[in-house]
Amino acid sequence: MTNPSLTLEEIKQIIFQLSIQEQITLIEDLEEKLSTTQMMQLAETGFSEWNDEEEDIYDI
């Protein structure tokens, strides 16, 4: 969820006002989210062959 009233530069300024520990926590949280997102995108490519509509035998 994004707030269209904030620019990226404004978000950076807010982040830089956080304590060092809060910034570290934020970085860790972002890394985890990005890692999960990347893994999900990678996993999707492995299942693309299963998206054959002619073989949807379980659709009733």
Rank of each mutant, 00 (worst) to 15 (best):
E22Q: 14
Q41M: 05
E54C: 08
G46C: 05
T36P: 00
Q13I: 10
I24M: 08
D56K: 03
T37K: 13
T37L: 12
E22W: 10
S48P: 01
P4V: 00
D29G: 06
F47R: 09
Q17L: 12
I24K: 15
T25D: 09
I57N: 08
S35K: 11
Q13Y: 10
Y58E: 05
I57D: 08
I60M: 08
L8K: 14
Q41K: 03
L34K: 06
E44A: 03
Q38R: 14
W50A: 04
T2Q: 15
S5D: 05
Q13R: 15
E31L: 03
M39T: 00
E31F: 05
I14Y: 05
P4D: 01
N3L: 06
T45G: 01
Q21F: 13
S5Y: 06
E49K: 15
L30C: 04
E9Q: 13
I15C: 01
Q41I: 01
D52Y: 04
N3A: 01
I20T: 04
I27R: 15
D59I: 04
I27A: 08
E32P: 00
I57L: 13
I24E: 09
L26F: 15
L8A: 09
D29W: 02
M1C: 03
W50Q: 12
E44H: 04
L42Y: 09
N3R: 02
I15N: 10
L18Y: 05
W50I: 04
A43V: 01
T36M: 15
E32F: 09
D52I: 05
E49A: 13
I27D: 04
I57K: 13
M39L: 11
P4A: 00
L34E: 06
E28K: 12
T45H: 05
I20C: 03
L26T: 04
S5F: 03
T37M: 10
D52C: 07
N51R: 08
Q23T: 01
T45N: 05
Q23I: 08
I15F: 15
D59H: 13
D56W: 02
S19L: 06
E53G: 03
Q23N: 02
L6S: 03
W50D: 04
I20K: 04
I24F: 12
E55F: 09
L42V: 00
D29T: 07
I14M: 14
F16L: 15
K33Y: 09
D56E: 04
E44M: 10
L42C: 01
M1N: 05
L6W: 14
Q41P: 00
T25G: 12
N51L: 13
I57R: 09
F16V: 08
E22H: 11
D29N: 14
I15G: 00
E28L: 00
Q21I: 03
Q13K: 15
E31P: 02
K12R: 13
I11N: 07
M40Q: 05
L34H: 08
Q13T: 13
Y58T: 06
Q23W: 01
S48T: 09
S5Q: 12
Q41D: 02
E9I: 01
K12M: 05
L18N: 01
S19Y: 07
I60K: 11
E55W: 06
D29A: 05
E31W: 00
F16M: 13
T37Y: 11
Q13V: 12
I27Q: 13
S19F: 07
L8P: 07
D29R: 12
I60R: 10
Q17D: 03
S48F: 11
I20A: 01
L8V: 11
D52N: 14
I24T: 07
I57H: 12
S48M: 10
Q13D: 11
Q38V: 07
I57P: 11
E53F: 06
I11Y: 13
